[in-house]
Design a protein around this nucleic acid. Sequence first.
DNA 1: ATAGGCATTGAACAGGTGTTTAGTGTTTGA
DNA 2: TCAAACACTAAACACCTGTTCAATGCCTAT
Lengths: 225, 225
Amino acid sequence: MRSSAEDLTTRARIRDAAIGLFGRDGFTRATVRAVATLAGVSPGLVIHHFGSKEGLRTACDQHVLAQTASQGLEKTNPGSTRQLIQDYLNDPEQYAQEIAYIRQSLADESDTGDAFFDAVVRQTEDSISAGIAAGTIRKFDDVRSTAVVIASNSLSILMLGRHLSRTLGAVTPEPHGIGPEVLRQLTLPALEIYTHGFYTDSRFLDAARDALQQDTINHGREHAP
Amino acid sequence: MRSSAEDLTTRARIRDAAIGLFGRDGFTRATVRAVATLAGVSPGLVIHHFGSKEGLRTACDQHVLAQTASQGLEKTNPGSTRQLIQDYLNDPEQYAQEIAYIRQSLADESDTGDAFFDAVVRQTEDSISAGIAAGTIRKFDDVRSTAVVIASNSLSILMLGRHLSRTLGAVTPEPHGIGPEVLRQLTLPALEIYTHGFYTDSRFLDAARDALQQDTINHGREHAP
DNA sequence: ATAGGCATTGAACAGGTGTTTAGTGTTTGA
DNA sequence: TCAAACACTAAACACCTGTTCAATGCCTAT
C-alpha cells in the first residue's frame, strides 16, 4: 500500500514525483521544475536535497530497484514473471509508476535498466532449471540462452504495452500501461505457443540448424565478402 | 546500397543526419545544432528546409517508413520477420540507422512507431493465416492475438537488443544494435520453443484457461473489491 | 533565551535550446 | 542581361534548462 498523501518526508515526496515524471516523460524531457511543482516545492530545494538532477536520478534508481527487488522478483519463487503479472493484475495503478520507470530505464542506457534485466534473466534461468528438474519444462540444451529468449519475450509486454493496448483496441487510461483486458486477451495465445509450439513440425528448426551449421563452416569469425 | 557520400542533395543529407542522431539519442536529446554540424551546414539551414525541428522529425518519419515499407515488410512474403532478419544479418550497419530510429519511435509516442507496429502485426497475421492454410503453422483460435504475441516477441529483440548483447557478452560496436553472434545464439532456443513448446504438457495452459474462465464469471467487467 | 543548524524560497545566473533575421552569393528563367 | 528566386550563413533573439546564492523562517540543543 503506497501512502499517497502527506505523511511522507519532503525528500521522499520529491523523489516519488521524480519517479512519476521520469517514468512518464523520460529523464531528459522531465525537468527539475516540473518535479518541484508536482512535489509542491521550489526547484532549488530539489537540488538542495539531491545535489543535482543526476543525483536525483540515482536516488530514484536505487529506490525503484529496492522496491521491485523486495516486493517483486525475489519473493516470487515459482512461476517466475507470471506471479508478478498476477500481482499486477490484482491491483494495477499500484506498480504503474515503477513499471513506467523501469520501461524508460530499459529503453535508455541506464544501470538500473541493466540491473533489472539481468535480475529478470537470472530469475528466469532459475525457474527454467527448476522446471526442468520438476519435469514441467522441456529440457533445453542452452538454458541460459533460452532464459534470455523467455525473459525478452516477457519484457516485450512491458516495452510495447502501449502498442499492444492500441492494436487490441483497449480503453487504456495510462498511455503506456497495460490493462487487465489486454493481458487476458494475450495470455492464452502466449501459453498455447509455449505449450504446443507455434509450428506444426520441426521443419523450420531443422532448416535453421542446418543453416547455422553451414554458416559456421563457411565463415566462422569473418564477414562475407 | 546507401550512398554514403556527397552525391545527395543537402536536404537529404540533413535528413539522414537527423535520422542517425534521432535514432541514437532520441528526438529530444538530439539538437538541431548537432544535426547541422553532422550534415556540415548551419543550424539555420535546417530550419529553412524543414520549417522546424518537428517538421524535420516528420520528414524523417516519412522517409524511414517509406524505406522500411519498400525494402522491408512488403516484399517479404514468406517467413515474416525472419526474412528481414536474414537480410539484416547479411549486411548489418546498412539498416542500423533505420532500426535505431524505429526503436526510438516504438519507445516514444510516435505515429511512425504506431504505423510500424501495426504493419508488423498485419504482416505477421497474414503469415500466420498463410502458414495455417499451408499446414506449417498450428491452427490458433485467435489468429490476431497470436499474431500480436509473435510480433511482440520478435520486436523485443529490437527493443532489448542492447541488453541481449550485454547479457550474452558480445562485443558490440553499436550500443543498441544486435550483432550476428547474438542472433545466432538466440535463433535455436527461440525456434525450439516455437517448435516443441516451452512446457512439457498443457498443465499451465489448462490452469490459465480455468482461471480466466473463473475470473470472467466472478467479475465480468468490474474490479475486485 | 539564544545561537546554530536545518529546510525552504525567490531571484538570479550561465549555458543551451529552437528559431528569426538580415545579408550574401549563386543559380535560373525571361 | 537582369531580376527574381534560391541555398546558405553568421549573428542575434527569446526562451528554457540546471544550478547557485542570499535571505528567511523554524526547530532544537545549550
